[in-house]
Design a protein around this nucleic acid. Sequence first.
DNA 1: CCTACCGATCGGTAGG
DNA 2: CCTACCGATCGGTAGG
Lengths: 203, 203
Amino acid sequence: MPQPPDDPTTKGERTRQALLEAAYQQFVQRGFHAASMRAIAEGAGITPGGIYNHFAGKDELFAAVVVAYHPLTRIFPQLIGAQGNSPEERLRNAAQGIADELEADDGLLNLFFAEMIECQGKHLATLSAALMPKALAFVTELHASVGTWPGITPVGLLQTFVGTVLATVFTRRFLASAGAPLPALAGIDEFMDIYLHGILRGE
Amino acid sequence: MPQPPDDPTTKGERTRQALLEAAYQQFVQRGFHAASMRAIAEGAGITPGGIYNHFAGKDELFAAVVVAYHPLTRIFPQLIGAQGNSPEERLRNAAQGIADELEADDGLLNLFFAEMIECQGKHLATLSAALMPKALAFVTELHASVGTWPGITPVGLLQTFVGTVLATVFTRRFLASAGAPLPALAGIDEFMDIYLHGILRGE
DNA sequence: CCTACCGATCGGTAGG
DNA sequence: CCTACCGATCGGTAGG
């Protein structure tokens, strides 16, 4: 009997998934322009011409990879789904979950950066439009329950929280690749200590 | 009379500087692989073959651009040179100076990202080795004069400070390009409020 | 520093 | 989905 077009058991859909995965690996390892359709096809186990049965071109393939793998699509669900007995605990748990996910696969951050540089961030507006409503509702409620400094809006709370988590992952990676000893580096716990209570000890 | 080889008044050195500037523009607008030697030559006012009188190849040209323009070479002097009557004031002034410089030219952050993705961060170790000793001396003294949370090392202080400034610039740019209203976003003052005193109001 | 050119590789297509 | 191929563009070089 016929299968729905996105049934993962059909051969076409399995090839499409293999192409997405192979394209993701090539794009995040080499960047958009240095990734070749030939290498992507080889990674998916087909010949270059076969790609065009699934994607109209390199741009469309990259756009599909962005939708499937972009860090923003991972960050927001973690944030909204975080549990905890207090706002502080929920933020800590969300930060931990996001940082774990981003550090488990270097490619996720690379995809963020590759999209901003090589595609001038042209996919970000679409992605944000899809993710922002729920995130904004969540953070507005959070903003009311934690007391923040004056001048911090709900959007500002979302921005500073996500920014702090990204700063954790990004600085750890670049300092490590610059040769810094990992145990001396701050991790998500230290960044969250600072985010929630400031770096200045004392009262 | 003969001029020293880096005298900016010689024709060769002026061409070299024009090439560096044109290459910087192309690399940060298009990324390393999509920037063509032809476009760089055109930007500098010469023909493609002429580039090789100044740089051995595209890789060497990019390396020279990294040395001349990489954000790390801007951040560390600003940090070390910052003035203020207290550690808090010095950190705020340094953050303001760095953020102003990075926001004045989007290319600086792009260069950081392009180098990490398309060149796998291979220039970072050299750059850090040159900049780290002075930065580390500065931050060690600072670390002793501000009271930080336990678990924050001098390197961790440097990491979290630079990370917070980068988070400011990065999140502002990506939220703006995603369509967020700029006045609602947190700026360097708000990020520094949080960094120094935490996001949780109350005592 | 320019002119003219090289081999290599690219994204994409025709036809089956 | 493969084979075979196209035009375009690339980084780099020879010779002057």
